[in-house]
Amino acid sequence: MRISRDKLNKLAHTIADTLAETDECEFLEDRNTIRQEARKILEKLLMEETRIDQAAKLKIQSQRKIILEGSQEWDILYRKYYNEEVKKLGI
């Protein structure tokens, strides 16, 4: 899933603000550094999600018979293969 730069920054700001308001959380770095790290982590997760999505779709395309995207069979296989890829990451 592609998220615009502005939305990604907004999410990172929200994460940093929420952490700052949490009593159990103490920053060892300034809030901007925390925001930047949150943004990097979000970008990495989104890139990984894109890779997983592509791997699941490639597995479906490699089937002997043609499976049309949007069909019930395609949806079932997509969820199955997507979950397999996620499990490989240990999530």
Rank of each mutant, 00 (worst) to 15 (best):
E85Y: 01
A38L: 00
R31M: 09
T50G: 04
A20K: 13
A56I: 03
L89G: 10
I34D: 01
R35E: 08
S4F: 07
E26R: 15
E26I: 14
Y82L: 10
M47G: 07
E21M: 03
I3H: 11
L89K: 15
A38M: 03
L89A: 09
L28G: 13
K87H: 13
W74K: 05
Q36C: 01
L42H: 02
Q63H: 13
I15S: 04
E84V: 05
E37I: 04
E24T: 09
R64T: 14
M47N: 08
E49N: 08
F27A: 01
K87M: 14
L11I: 10
E48T: 07
K87W: 09
L45D: 14
I41V: 03
A56H: 03
L8R: 03
K57C: 05
A55L: 06
D6P: 06
E73W: 05
I66Q: 12
I41L: 00
A55I: 02
K88D: 07
L42K: 01
L45S: 03
E29G: 05
Y81H: 13
T50H: 06
K10D: 12
S71Y: 00
H13I: 01
K44Y: 00
T50N: 07
T18M: 08
S62P: 02
A12T: 04
D17I: 00
Q63A: 10
E48C: 01
A20D: 11
R79G: 02
Y81E: 05
F27H: 13
E43A: 03
K40Y: 03
C25R: 04
I91V: 15
T33H: 11
L19P: 00
A12L: 04
E37Q: 13
E85P: 02
R79H: 08
D75R: 14
C25D: 02
E49M: 06
E21W: 03
E43H: 01
I67H: 01
D30A: 13
D30F: 12
T14G: 04
Q54S: 10
A56V: 00
E49I: 00
Y78H: 10
T18V: 09
Q36A: 09
Y82D: 05
L89Y: 08
R51E: 08
D17A: 11
T18F: 04
L46Y: 03
E73L: 09
I15K: 01
I60T: 06
I76Y: 11
K57G: 02
E84D: 12
L8F: 02
I76N: 07
I3M: 15
L89D: 12
A20F: 04
E21F: 00
R79D: 13
R31S: 11
Q63T: 09
Q36M: 10
E21R: 06
K80E: 13
Q72Y: 07
K10E: 15
Y81K: 05
N83F: 14
K59L: 05
M1K: 10
G70I: 07
L46H: 04
L89F: 05
G70F: 09
E85H: 12
S4V: 05
R79K: 14
L45H: 02
D75G: 08
E29Y: 09
Y81T: 02
R2L: 10
T33V: 13
K87N: 15
I41T: 10
N32Q: 14
I3L: 15
S4Y: 07
T50S: 08
